[in-house]
Design a protein around this nucleic acid. Structure first.
Length: 294
DNA sequence: CACTTGACCTGTCCGC
DNA sequence: TGCGGACAGGTCAAGT
């Protein structure tokens, strides 16, 4: 759910809302959501100031003074929602999808000296937050093996194809979801990109013609950029740093569109299972490539 | 070694 | 209406 565009949207919001704020208090109620011992959290977070908010793949990094950072993965249902000082008694903003906070899915609350708060909500408890020295982030296993950012100007079609070919006998959808091949793509944007490129998700990588892969490369960049513009996709839980929904899902072509007409050919979109995931496909517009040189 | 499946969790939806 | 089970999907560990 939170994929590159959603995490980037949260990053932009948090950077605007959090930088410069001083931490007064940190509370958490679920150890797996924030495993650092309380004594360490208090020592390095309280009285420190937020100086930057960064992203790599689907991971957020909130940098603090004293060279410590909060590293956060939202997984499927994680939310980071900022609320201003609520002493006005208004309850919560009426345009927020999230109700009064904290609620039963709140795992961590960070309170700032001005009374504002940052809530880490996570219904399914798969997400996590870790406090560590900023220079240690690059040593996390995931960071060592994660692939390139698809929106980097340095990320060329040539590099894209050579990386896909590391798993050339696999189906293309599984490879797009593999974060060590390319960073940031999840179920929504894999389906949308493959539709745009006219490739069936079960196609085998080395059977797909080069011009199709180039179309896929271009589609991934275009779709991720457009999705960031739209503030991401709110399918179920995802909200931005202000608790608001993203609107990309409204313009999605195939994701969650099963039984609805394909925007190109009108045939009903089909939902199948590929790489163990629910997968949306137009069987007429997306060609299945299974054997090389055909 | 490459790929697939199961585990981690909770809430929702569907069929009986 | 209540209840069981399937499903939602990011990543890592375990299994084939």
């Amino acid at each position: 759910m939170p994929e590159l565009p959603e995490v980037e949207t949260v990053r932009i919001g948090l950077k605007r809302l959090l930088v410069g704020r001083d931490i007064a208090k940190v509370e958490h109620n679920w150890n797996k959501s924030f495993p650092n011992p309380k004594i360490e959290v208090d020592k390095y977070m309280i009285n420190s100031k937020i100086i930057d908010v960064r992203r790599r793949a689907k991971i957020l990094m909130i940098d603090l003074t004293e060279n410590y950072s909060l590293v956060i993965h939202l997984k499927m249902t994680g939310q980071l929602v900022f609320r201003g000082n609520e002493d006005f008694g208004a309850g919560h903003p009426t345009d927020s999808l999230v109700g009064k906070l904290p609620d039963k899915s709140t795992r961590v609350v960070i309170t700032f000296y001005d009374g504002s708060k940052l809530y880490f909500n996570d219904q399914r408890k798969f997400g996590w937050m870790r406090l560590m020295p900023t220079t240690e982030i690059k040593n996390i296993d995931f960071m060592k093996k994660v692939g390139p950012e698809p929106l980097d100007d340095n990320f060329t079609n040539t590099e894209f194809i050579s990386r896909l070919y590391k798993r050339k006998k696999s189906n293309i959808k599984a490879v797009l979801l593999d974060q060590t091949i390319i960073a940031g793509i999840g179920n929504i944007y894999a389906d949308e990109s493959l539709f745009a490129a006219g490739i069936h998700p079960a196609s085998i990588v080395n059977a797909i013609p080069a011009d199709r892969l180039k179309k896929l490369y271009i589609s991934i960049k275009q779709i991720l950029l457009l999705a960031i513009e739209k503030g991401g996709s709110t399918d179920r839980n995802y909200v931005n740093a202000e608790g608001k929904r993203g609107s990309y899902i409204d313009i999605a072509k195939v994701f969650r569109k099963e039984k609805q007409p394909c925007p190109k050919c009108n045939l009903a979109i089909t939902k199948i299972r590929v790489a163990g995931r629910g997968t949306h496909v137009c069987l007429s517009c997306q060609k299945l490539y299974l054997e090389a040189n055909k």
